[in-house]
């Protein structure tokens, strides 16, 4: 959910953009990170742990902890809490450690 009225802050959101998450269309605003845009759409589970497949969301939101890694436009292990969402970006849940050679 996005904050509309805030006593101190004003959020100047630009034109809506859309990106895809696991094939679904999600709308976002420029300047939002991928993880925050997903969160605003009610998606808090971003990935899962490798060994026990436990659900994982973000934790630090500043790029310190690697709890938010996803595949973005084919590139694995992207810290979605710090990377800004772009129009038509393709975001997918990552399976396993990710294959770096897959990206051209």
């Amino acid at each position: 959910m996005r904050i509309k009225d805030h006593p101190i802050l004003e959020f100047k959101r630009g034109e809506k953009i859309t990106f895809s998450y696991n094939g679904k269309k999600i709308s976002a605003y420029p300047g939002e990170t991928i993880a925050s845009a997903l969160h605003a759409a009610g998606i808090r589970k971003l990935t899962h742990s490798q060994k026990h497949q436990r659900p994982r969301g973000f934790f630090c939101a500043i790029g310190n902890c690697s709890s938010c890694l996803m595949v973005v436009d084919g590139e694995p292990n992207v810290k979605t809490c710090v990377v800004e969402v772009q129009e038509d970006m393709v975001v997918e849940e990552q399976q396993g450690k990710g294959d770096l050679s897959a990206k051209v």
Binding site: L9, T33, S36, C60, C65
Partner: peptide, 30 residues
């Protein structure tokens, strides 16, 4: 970096550092 606490299920989505909550709210308005 923010410190963690150990307790059962401390890895569930929805458990965030205070700084992360602040980032989400005050920087992105979510």
């Amino acid at each position: 970096s923010e410190k963690m606490l150990s307790f059962p299920n401390n890895d569930l989505p929805g458990i965030y550092g205070a700084g992360a909550v602040q980032t989400l709210m005050n920087q992105y308005g979510i």
